[in-house]
């Protein structure tokens, strides 16, 4: 099995995101692996373990070179090699997907990888666009936000949450999935795995694209919370207020 995993970096949740002179200040931000990508990577590594011998997990990340540290961790979690791809100046999801698709075609040649795993969304921008754009660019079967996966050598059965229920789908190889929290429990890295990961290759791949952005960010502003909480003495008063506001029933 040839398995690719797309990983990105996001500020960890304890990072302070502040504004200086109206502009967003990310200088005090600590970047970590996107939490959803941990589930994606774990699922890939489980596949590798199941089809042992010939399977390889290759990681792809569009980010500045500072993402090496995160990729080391991903290699310790079970990736075999990693490719770091530099972003365009103001990458939008389409450009990111385009860079990833070119890199995957470069690395795998004419054949596609059997499987590609991505996270459901990145927790910083939450666009949830890159995975299915990538699938469309590569011409792969794909399903977003899966919560369950059962594979045989011929087909893959997956489930995803829809509003008020669960949808079951059948997919063939080669396929791309973006994964939802709860698909698996990502492993902790061991010291031995961390040591071994140091020997695994992280290569830079230079991809140039000429397509311009589909979407641009025109402003980023602090979210002003102008609500002022009215503390109420008891539930009787609460019901009165809510009935008055017509939000009950």
């Amino acid at each position: 099995m040839r398995i690719a995993v797309c990983l990105c970096q996001v500020p960890d949740t304890s990072s302070v995101i502040s504004f200086v002179g109206g502009a967003i200040d990310l200088s005090r931000v600590n970047e970590v692996m996107n939490p959803f990508d941990e589930y994606a990577l774990e699922e890939a590594v489980r596949f590798k373990e199941r089809f042992e011998g010939s399977s390889q997990v290759t990681l792809f990340c569009v980010a500045p070179s500072s993402a090496r540290e995160m990729l080391r961790k991903a290699l310790a979690m079970g990736g075999d090699r990693a490719f770091l791809l530099s972003p365009t100046e103001h990458s939008d999801p389409f450009q990111t997907a385009l860079i990833l698709s070119r890199a995957i075609t470069d690395v795998y040649g004419d054949a596609l990888p059997d499987l590609v795993f991505c996270g459901k969304h990145s927790t910083d921008f939450q666009s949830a666009q890159v995975p299915l754009m990538l699938a469309e660019l590569l011409g792969m079967e794909s399903v977003g936000a899966i919560i369950k996966l059962e594979a045989s050598l011929a087909t893959i059965q997956v489930e995803r949450e829809i509003e008020g229920g669960i949808e079951s789908l059948e997919v063939h190889y080669p396929a791309l999935f973006s994964v939802e929290k709860g698909l698996n429990v990502p492993r902790k890295t061991t010291i031995k795995a961390v040591m071994e990961a140091r020997k695994k290759p992280i290569d830079f791949l230079s991809i140039t694209i000429s397509t311009s952005q589909f979407v641009s960010i025109t402003s980023i502003k602090p979210l002003v919370k102008e609500k002022k909480c009215r503390f109420l003495p008891d539930t009787q008063e609460l019901v009165r207020q809510l009935a008055h506001e017509h939000v009950l029933f």
Partner: peptide, 9 residues
Amino acid sequence: AAIASFAPC
């Protein structure tokens, strides 16, 4: 923490 404005190109 922030609100962004996105514009189509």
